[in-house]
Design a protein around this nucleic acid. Structure first.
Lengths: 323, 323
DNA sequence: CTAAATGTTGTAACGCGTTACATGTCAAGT
DNA sequence: ACTTGACATGTAACGCGTTACAACATTTAG
């Protein structure tokens, strides 16, 4: 393995000049540049990325913090990786599997200069704890956070959820169930508030059993709807879901139980993923890919010391066969 | 930001001793260790990851090369990230979007010591070209490769496909269609060979239109089956798919066309993903998560200079509502 | 009581680019 | 002819741990 020092010696120039050639500095004469490039080629030289990271004090790597990679975050991850790479940044995945200690490793890695910034997709640690890591680099979250230091690219969940509620209400459903996600997340609290307001405004029939939190997966969707439909206390005729996976689970279980969709049960998913399209589930389009881009822009802005230019984003409801 | 040098000066010991404390070397007295640890804590010291990578000559990072992150590779990615992290390695995602030049960046990054090894999930560059990067570090592929230097964790696709073929043949289907994946991949050639052999052995009705390659996505599945079912030349009564996404597309399109599944059309997916479970698609269980683990074991073996201990893996067919 | 073994700590070079600052050169401006 | 500035290049310190080797102290064995 050749290094910059050897190139310098062989070419007869100093390390600084060689470095200038590498970094396309204009302060090198054409002749010098060419002769150095020639030697680099002969020795099959490439600069060592670690040395660059060390001396520049940045790694051009951004960590993505998540509990695990699933269908819902797929467009977020894909879009983030893609956009970051266009700006010269690589993405490192940190999956916690729900273990706070493991999740913390991502934050420690930023402290140790292994990554320049972090994007949080989902996170299981205490927000105050995360806040203490803000001094080591930019942290941006997909979900809305209480801490002002941690900016979020999430959209106003209240509006999005209201869109879904008014859609089913407009189609005559009044016994609306809710399968909400992470109980502590601000996404969820926005959605809950939307439901409360809608219930009052539109005189919905309210049953505490119909509203549950902590539902994220296909399986949980299946179990939830089985419980609701078989409950003796009457069952809902519409359900809004935390995400499309939950909606998919509910749809397939409803079919198994011979419940007619959408006549007896309307289902609205969230995120408008490929899954919703495939299964024909009405879904609220959460422009996730654009949010991921915004996350990167926020990070680049903070890394560059200037303010960012985020795109303005809006929800849309895509109606399909389940409503 | 404090560094090791400051810790050394403040504690009165040399850098070497401080380094020994960091690396839990046994050659440090208890008293020294404690006094150094105390100072590190006071200064809120953490070693710089880049400096470690540079001096040790390894980054503890492994690159995952893929065209894009999709449902099929989800379990592979998840399992790899998880297993790697258990062994102290982080995973960096390189998505090419099908662009060979962009894909090459991952390989260049290994050459530049940014990653210690690479796992290829899908790859669009010429294999010979990839081979020239083997000297820079271990490269392991999910799919089978022709180059002997690049080991693969793929299973024998011939056997797996034959399992699916014999399943539908055993249930009386003889007009079997094939939606194969990447035409140039060795996975595909193994599957094609299995189909040829089965066609001969079981006297299947063969129609060249029924066998297509290059089908990977939900949309492609939808389009394919529409074409096949509406074709005037008679249509197949069973189809084996490159993956579960394709099967999902075929299933939903068949329903839209009012074709009865499995009576008029049997569908067999591949990989037995969550999607197959949700939609009730018969699928050939490709133990992807275990393959990802094997990929890591292979890499660790090569990095450590010793031979690996891979797990032995087998296909299984999971029968559901589509056959 | 001495030699060999064991344990503790230090020295200095190494891994490899980057960059602030200094120096030298040559042409344009006066 | 002399100053000024533009351009080219070099010097040396810096970013930060790791590690082979040397050196010294303290046990332990004989």
């Amino acid at each position: 393995m050749s290094n910059l020092d050897q190139i310098a010696k062989l070419s007869g120039f100093s390390k600084a000049t060689v470095s200038r050639v590498l970094n396309r500095s204009p302060h090198v004469s054409q002749a010098t540049r060419e002769s150095i490039l020639k030697i680099m080629e002969e020795l099959d030289y490439v600069p060592n990325g670690n040395a660059i990271s060390l001396s520049r004090g940045q790694t051009m790597q951004i960590g993505m913090v998540t509990e695990g990679i699933n269908e819902v975050m797929l467009p977020f991850l894909n879009s983030f990786v893609e956009t970051a790479s266009q700006h010269g940044y690589q993405t490192i995945i940190y999956t916690s599997g729900g273990d706070p200690a493991k999740e913390l490793q991502a934050f420690e890695d930023m402290r140790r200069k292994r990554v320049d910034a972090l994007v949080i997709s989902t996170c299981v640690n205490d927000q105050a704890l995360l806040g203490s890591y803000c001094k080591y680099g930019p942290i941006v979250s997909w979900q809305r956070m209480e801490l002002p230091e941690i900016q979020s690219v999430a959209m106003n969940q209240y509006d999005g959820y209201m869109l879904g509620l008014e859609h089913v209400i407009g189609r005559g459903y009044t016994r609306i169930a809710n399968a909400w996600g992470r109980p502590t997340s601000m996404n969820t609290s926005g959605r809950i508030q939307a439901y409360r307001d809608a219930a009052r405004k539109y005189h919905l029939e309210v049953n505490p059993e119909w509203s549950q939190t902590g539902i994220y997966s296909i399986r949980q969707g299946e179990e939830l709807i089985r419980g609701l439909l078989l409950s003796p206390g009457g069952h809902p005729n519409a359900i809004l879901c935390a995400n499309d996976m939950v909606a998919a689970g509910i749809l397939s279980e409803a079919r198994r139980l011979k419940v007619k969709v959408p006549e007896e049960l309307a289902i609205v998913g969230f995120d408008n993923t490929e899954l919703a399209h495939t299964l024909g589930i009405t879904s609220i389009d959460n422009p996730i890919a654009a949010q991921a881009q915004n996350a990167l822009y926020l990070i680049l802005g903070k890394l560059g010391g200037k303010e960012n230019g985020q795109q303005e984003l809006e929800f849309q409801l895509v109606q399909r066969a389940t409503t």
